[in-house]
Design a protein around this nucleic acid. Structure first.
Length: 559
RNA sequence: GCGCUCGUAGCUCAGUGGAUAGAGCGCAGCCCUGCGAAGGCUGAGGUCGUGAGUUCAAGUCUCACCGAGCGCACCA
């Protein structure tokens, strides 16, 4: 990337200045290469001189001048300028910028890829909603975040697996099974109440009906008995089938579905507990088995096995992570959790460390919960209260693309207000259509060029020198830098903003620079410029399509 | 009470310690006899929650306070 080349140029210039004795031999911090906010300051800038001022005992401006003098101005670099209070600004040459169009076209949809992952095996586990109800709107945020992050990490050169942990072993699915059984019994005219803390939602009735269709009355037990195990297992299966449809609706695909119960049936749980015991992290008191995390800086110990003999969720989660790191060998694991799980983070990291795995290999991203509103009215999301705004309902209203675009565009840390009414009302004024429209416009132009038989493969991009043309190229070249920074920070929320800026840059170019001649054969621009601009347009198509693809959105040919 | 996160334009949100704080929506105007007006252009709108501190430089880092969300189980 040109940004890295500029960092190298600066580093080389500093070294030459020091060798020449113009700059004292002080240690040089990592060279920051920034993007100036104002275009008149050039394409890139460094504030290194200001950082060196103290140790070098020179004025920032003098340092900037001294370093700038050593930077060769040729090739991609058209101008190196010193600006107060101590910046060095770099401007890229028009020829170099134009030449990047051919590079983008030849890279195609691989444009934007960077090589920082180096093929490391990485797992992203996200949402993993308990199979006791449909995917709700709040889960949408985690889905958009987890899936977009996965796409970004793939673009950054990681081998990524998306995983859904199915919590099919705990008390919640047990309560769900009892709820389902009550509904099932009701279908046969029996008096049966939904258990305390059960799930009153209508969807359970639908699943009960599916159960009845498949099994008739064969699952009925004597009145008063609790649900047979089949109801639990089949109920979860049916619920998961629903969840898969919900995910399908928003275009999220998991590579692996991991059953929590499997850690018990395959011996992973015993193996994990034995390892913890062996490493001295287990003690027994008050009839329970404890994870002695206080010995490694945790505030207090946590229960692994209840006095009833049943393992806690924490215990199975440790076994689950043993499976991820030790058995499946992921180099890095990223868990995307809602803020209601934040308290679980420190002990999970401690537990991974206790297993002998470097806790740095586990990254837990916490996203703040979504506050749902209908206009000014707050909507409570609760499966237990039965008031669920399903994700599918939202997607049917506003479309998968708009839903994803809106969910992914917020930093995970920021609390999110999601107004369902507004999301629906704005659907046609939504920025997402602006971006997609730009792509459709591009396809329209390219189709017309094809109809008119214009072959632009040999177009001379050096004819491009209008500001709007160059601004568009500059915007396109940002994508790889963005992928790199998103993969490092694990924050994909910049993507919608970038897509928006790309669309704006294209629309602006479109207004100012005519691509095809007004009539079929004659009129401005001249044929050479038309071909060059067609190349630019097709490069813009690639970049927009890639940006949309990274968000899991479609790039339509027409709207 | 303790911990995590947040507080930026009317609303929803961006803003890798750097140069004059931005976008979308909304609001007030203007622009199609030409490649898609789902577009373009102009304007109004800000004590970056408050107060201290660190720094050559703070919306960004530290501390305190105020306000909001979420945690603090032998639930998951």
């Amino acid at each position: 990337m040109i940004k890295d080349d500029i960092a190298d140029l600066i580093a080389g210039a500093v070294k030459r200045a020091q060798d020449a004795g113009d700059l004292p031999p002080v240690p040089i911090p990592d060279t920051p290469v920034e993007r100036p906010q104002r275009p008149e300051h050039g394409d890139y800038a460094t504030s290194l001189p200001m950082r060196l001022a103290r140790s070098a005992r020179m004025s920032p401006l003098d340092i900037a001048g001294t370093i700038a003098k050593q930077i060769p101005v040729h090739g991609p670099i058209e101008e190196v300028a010193v600006a107060p209070p101590g910046f060095i600004n770099f401007r890229l040459s028009r020829q170099w910028l134009a030449s990047q169009i051919d590079a983008i076209i030849s890279e195609g949809l691989a444009f934007g890829n960077v090589a920082i992952g180096k093929g490391q095996k990485l797992q992203v586990e996200f949402v993993s909603a308990n199979p006791v109800g449909p995917i709700h709107v709040g889960n949408g945020r985690g889905l958009a975040l987890g899936d977009t992050l996965s796409r970004v990490l793939e673009a950054a050169g990681y081998e990524v697996q998306r995983e859904y942990l199915v919590n099919d072993a705990g008390t919640q699915t047990q309560v769900f099974a009892e709820t389902l059984y009550a509904r099932y019994q009701q279908l046969f005219g029996r008096e049966a109440d939904i258990p305390q803390g059960g799930y009153p939602g209508e969807y359970v009735i639908e699943i009960a009906e599916a159960l009845k269709r498949a099994y008739g009355d064969s699952l009925l037990r004597p009145p008063g008995d609790s649900a047979p195990p089949e109801v639990h297992d089949v109920g979860i299966e049916l619920m998961l089938a629903d969840i898969r449809k919900d995910l399908e609706a928003i275009g999220v695909h998991y590579d692996n579905w991991f059953s929590e119960r499997s850690v018990y049936s395959t011996g992973v749980y015993e193996k994990t507990m034995a390892l913890l015991r062996e490493r001295g992290f287990v003690s027994e008191r008050e009839g329970a088995v404890w994870f002695v995390s206080s010995s490694i800086g945790e505030e207090k110990d946590n229960v692994l096995v209840r006095s009833t003999g049943a393992p806690t969720y924490f215990a199975s989660d440790i076994a689950y992570h043993y499976d991820k790191f030790v058995l499946r060998g992921f180099d890095r694991v990223i868990n995307v959790w809602g803020a209601d799980h934040q308290g679980h983070v420190p002990r999970m990291k401690a537990a991974v460390g206790a297993l002998g795995v470097d806790p740095e290999r586990l990254t837990i991203i916490i996203y703040q919960l979504v506050t749902l509103k209908r206009g000014a009215e707050l909507v409570k999301l609760s499966k237990r209260a039965g008031d669920i705004v399903t994700l599918r309902e939202l997607v049917e209203e506003v479309g998968a693309d708009a839903a994803r675009y809106n969910f992914v565009g917020r930093a995970a840390d920021s609390h999110m207000d999601f107004d369902i009414e507004l999301a629906k009302a704005q659907s046609s004024e939504n920025p997402v259509y602006y971006v997609k429209y730009a792509h459709a416009r591009i396809v329209g132009i390219l189709n017309q060029a094809a109809e008119r038989g214009i072959d632009y493969a040999g177009g001379d991009v050096s004819l491009l020198s209008e500001d709007a043309e160059l601004a568009l190229i500059r915007k396109m070249l940002r994508l790889p830098e963005l992928v790199e920074s998103m993969a490092e920070s694990l924050e994909p929320h910049q993507l919608p903003y970038y897509a928006m800026e790309m669309a704006t840059a294209f629309h602006d170019f479109y207004e100012k620079c005519r691509v095809l001649p007004a009539s079929d054969t004659t009129g401005p621009p001249d044929p050479g410029v038309t071909k060059a601009r067609l190349k630019l347009v097709s490069a813009a198509k690639v970049v927009l399509a890639r940006a949309l693809d990274l968000m899991g959105m479609s790039a339509p040919d027409r709207m």
